[in-house]
């Protein structure tokens, strides 16, 4: 289950009203690479994930993304909470305002409402982890683009933090892929038996592959097809 903590992960203090910027940043709330999609992707991928460290990683990163969703919502709210009549009409917020007023709605900046079609749950270790690596990079680029478009220092402090989290999550999913989502998976039949020599498991360091090396030398295991040296 989830328990709410009545605080943000990182402080959001936006002083200036800027509806045009809110119109851009809303994309990280409900856009194709936004925080809503991120949390749903990871929390949904957990069920078919067979290994404890990857269940943990998806749970923890998925939960953190919910905190980021709240931060993006706080930015959009604080950018629009003191709108003047003039700003409503002329600041580029009118097409959002007519439908949502100053409510925070999960939509892309284009106006396309949040769609689960922008994320995937494949139920396969390598496919899902590779999806997650790509997702973190796409979110990182979206934050790059927000920094290209925004000149509000209060907003940019928060965006820098959120962008850096994408970099760290990418590293963690990469670490996770090295522990499990590797050649071992590609070589495993549905029944769980390895079809070929496990001599060059990815993520298994040289010292941990002694047994397959010995097996290869005694002729009981075929050479690893991917290694330049015999397995």
């Amino acid at each position: 289950m989830f328990i709410y903590e009545k605080k943000l992960q990182y402080p959001v203090h936006i002083r200036n009203t800027n509806p045009k910027l809110a119109n851009i940043i809303i994309s990280q709330y409900g856009g194709p690479d936004g925080e809503l999609g991120a949390s749903l992707r990871y929390l949904s991928q957990r069920y078919a994930m067979p290994y404890p460290e990857l269940k943990g990683l998806l749970t923890d990163i998925g939960t953190e993304e919910l905190g980021h969703l709240e931060m993006i919502g706080a930015i959009v709210h604080q950018l629009t909470r003191k709108l003047t009549d003039e700003q409503i009409r002329t600041a580029g917020f009118d097409t959002y305002f007519v439908d949502r007023t100053t409510g925070v709605y999960p939509t892309a900046a284009s106006g396309f409402p949040y769609s689960a079609a922008s994320m995937a749950v494949k139920g396969d270790v390598i496919a899902d982890l590779t999806e997650d690596l790509a997702a973190e990079q796409k979110a990182r680029v979206t934050y790059d683009n927000i920094l290209r478009l925004s000149d509000d220092p209060d907003v940019n402090d928060v965006i820098r933090f959120l962008r850096e989290r994408e970099v760290v999550h990418f590293q963690r999913f990469g670490d996770g892929k090295r522990t499990r989502g590797s050649e071992k998976e590609l070589l495993t039949k549905p029944g769980g038996r390895l079809t070929r020599s496990p001599g060059c498991f990815v993520g298994v360091r040289p010292s941990a592959t002694k047994t397959p090396y010995r097996a290869a030398r005694s002729g009981s295991a075929p050479p690893c097809p991917h290694c330049s040296r015999p397995a």
Binding site: T130, R160, F161, E164, F170, G174, V202, H226
Partner: peptide
Amino acid sequence: PSCAPLAVPYVPFQRRGAQKYDHSAALENG
């Protein structure tokens, strides 16, 4: 990894004992 097969993309595994910030610098830097 010492053996990096084709068709599997890699992120270098973070080594243990990496340098760390204190808690306030960690929050500030993300």
